[in-house]
Design a protein around this nucleic acid. Structure first.
Length: 262
DNA sequence: ATGGTAGCTAGGCTA
């Protein structure tokens, strides 16, 4: 059962319902994982998605902040949700496809501006979220699984516009990269996007604060698609839809796609 | 060093 999967930090699913619909019409992924829905689950505008064949939805939500959703043309079996770092936020949800593959959709805390947990509680929460993720993978090694989402960390030098200038900027500090790498290794996760596109600059997010984001191109790769080795072997054709960042009233993130021939 | 923009929701928090 081959399928195409996409992940996109939508920054309000209600405000950007028309953009979601445009993406579904243009690219028709089988599964679309959204982050930062900023909506209670019962207020997600699912009718417009269902009309395009996306009849299945598994989500966690809260008013105003966070929120994750898995939207699918294929049936979804809800697997549940974790509350890593005990924040009580809607940052994870998981669902199983008919072929048995479990999809984990994460929105990792951004972590505030100061990369020091003594001075900034939110940075500590971000590291704790990743540590809890690592522990969960050590306790229960994932199998036949995909993990996607806004992980809010750009791990590689070529995942940011300037490695040197971002070393002390939250999202690219060494301690964050260490925590993310520990989680990745604990789950034996393969970075599918970099398996398919091994070389060169690759970004999925450009700040709203940068005028002329396209020309300046001060991006970071914060959005990721990981898979367990067996599933990753079946992956191909990964791409980041940079053009979507240039749509009218855009999200600050571009969608990331991967195809799986399973 | 600072400020730059956006969403939610009505002043400030979060990103």
């Amino acid at each position: 059962m081959p399928f195409t999967l996409a992940t996109w930090n939508i920054n309000s699913v209600r405000l950007r319902e028309p953009l979601v619909i445009d993406l579904l019409k243009a690219e028709a992924p089988d599964v679309l994982c959204l982050q930062e829905c900023k909506s209670p689950v019962d207020k997600i505008p699912r009718e417009g998605f269902a009309a395009l064949g996306y009849e299945h939805l598994v989500a966690r939500g809260q008013k105003g902040y966070n929120g994750v959703a898995i939207l699918s043309k294929l049936p979804l079996e809800e697997v549940g949700a974790e509350d890593f770092a005990g924040l009580g936020h809607a940052r994870h949800v998981a669902a199983r496809l008919p072929n048995g593959v479990v999809i984990h959709n994460h929105y990792v805390p951004a972590g505030g501006d100061i990369p020091d947990r003594e001075k900034n509680e939110k940075f500590g929460q971000k590291l704790d979220y990743l540590t809890d993720m690592t522990k969960a993978f050590e306790a229960d090694r994932p199998k036949d699984a995909i993990l996607v989402g806004d992980l809010n960390i750009a791990p590689r030098e070529d995942d940011v516009w300037s490695h040197k200038q971002l070393l002390k900027i939250v999202s690219h500090t060494p301690i964050e990269v260490e925590h993310l790498t520990a989680a990745q290794e604990a789950g034996d996760w393969v970075d599918v996007t970099r398996k398919d596109i091994p070389e060169g600059p690759l970004y999925s997010w450009w700040s709203y604060r940068s005028p002329d984001w396209d020309k300046a191109d001060k991006g970071r790769r914060l959005d990721h698609v990981w898979a367990t080795p067996d599933v990753a072997r079946a992956a191909s054709g990964s791409r980041i839809l940079r053009d979507v960042r240039g749509w009218e009233k855009p999200s600050d993130h571009a969608p990331v796609f991967a195809h799986f021939d399973l």
